[in-house]
């Protein structure tokens, strides 16, 4: 089988892979910010909720998270009168990955926030800033930069995790590769999977390049 034919079949799954990656990245970041915020409050309830969430998510394999979402979410939704039977599978994929990655994102943001040098906060207060202004002008911008390397790792991890959506029957690149291998009785499977690996590697390299470029703009800010 020609490389170009394999490539065409695999790339057919690329839109789903990219959609899953981008949407899950956005939602898991939002969940992460929210949970990190809760975990940093003095409020005991918020702290406990965030700790339980992070604990559950970190202790659940991503594959299982997708299965739980696919089979469990419709049941939960039906309790509140929402019928999700006709929802596209990709919604469950995005949901499962977002919830699964949100816990890691929360940890990345929380630890970055706590890594901001206390002297920076003291200086902000000493020049007369309020707590909110210090947060906006000094703490969050620095925490954001500290979080970037971890977020990059998580995004690459998420890219690879998108290949797990085959368990809910979603046609991403991996699912296409697997199907192509099967219909050819496994004759070309090594060739197919090498090509698939190369595509993931290119995507991961693009992410790395993007982060490197972004970070180079902030090279003058020592973390």
């Amino acid at each position: 089988m020609k490389v170009i034919k394999i490539l065409a079949a695999l790339v057919g799954g690329l839109p789903n892979t990219i959609t899953l990656l981008i949407a899950s990245f956005i939602f898991s970041s939002l969940i992460g910010i929210g949970v990190a915020f809760l975990s940093l409050q003095d409020d005991k309830v918020g702290k406990s909720v965030s700790r339980v969430y992070i604990g559950l998510v970190r202790g659940t394999p991503p594959l299982l998270m997708l299965l739980l979402t696919y089979y469990g979410l419709p049941k939960l939704l039906s309790f509140i009168g929402i019928d999700s039977n006709n929802w596209a599978k990709i919604i469950f994929g995005i949901f499962g990955l977002s919830v699964g990655w949100g816990g890691y994102m929360a940890e990345a943001f929380r630890s970055a926030y706590l890594s901001v040098d206390e002297g920076q906060i003291k200086a902000a207060y000493s020049v007369g800033m309020t707590g909110e202004t210090a947060l906006r002008e000094i703490i969050l911008p620095q925490a954001f930069l500290i979080a970037i390397p971890n977020v990059e790792n998580l995004l690459i991890g998420l890219l690879k995790a998108t290949s797990l959506v085959y368990v809910i029957g979603l046609a991403d690149m991996y699912q296409n590769a697997s199907n192509l291998s099967n219909v050819n009785q496994g004759v070309y499977q090594l060739k197919i999977f090498i090509i698939l690996a190369l595509i993931y590697w290119i995507l991961a390299s693009l992410i790395e390049w993007g982060f490197r470029t972004y970070q180079s703009h902030f090279a003058h800010v020592e973390a």
Binding site: D117, G119, Q120, K122, A123, A124, S126, E137, I138, P141, Q142, L145, V221, E222, A223
Partner: peptide, 10 residues
């Protein structure tokens, strides 16, 4: 301050 504590992002 002893360690200057200049705002690193400014």
């Amino acid at each position: 301050f002893q360690n200057y504590n200049l705002f690193k992002n400014k």
